[in-house]
Design a protein around this nucleic acid. Sequence first.
DNA 1: TCCGTGACAAGAC
DNA 2: CGTCTTGCCACGG
Length: 119
Amino acid sequence: MNLTQPTTTGPRNDIRLYTLLASVPEGKVVTYGQLAELIGLPRRARWVGQILKQLPNDTRLPWHRVINAQGRISLPPLNGGDEQAKRLREEGVVVSQDGKISLRRYGWKTQPRPRPRLL
DNA sequence: TCCGTGACAAGAC
DNA sequence: CGTCTTGCCACGG
């Protein structure tokens, strides 16, 4: 078996993903791609989505803090999307009515806007 | 094995 | 902004 390439399947990376996700602080959001990259699996954003999809409904993990790179909720409104927006708002994240979220302000590990010099 | 599908991403316009 | 296209990769039929 090829051990030189990072594997995607199997519980190993799943655990790494869960662990990382669990560390995303309240009031912050991450993108699928970021999560994948942070655990050493670049370009596996879709895989992250697959894993999250399988989470039990009563999971304690902050799945709602995961959004797409466009700063939008990827979940259909009637299938979790509304719930996600609700949870995010409950922790202070501003979600515009059309489901847009500012990654600049709420993105985890993303540069907060460089403060403009006042003179 | 080929092919479509998906909680994605980035770039062109 | 929106829409399209391409690239990506795991899965399942």
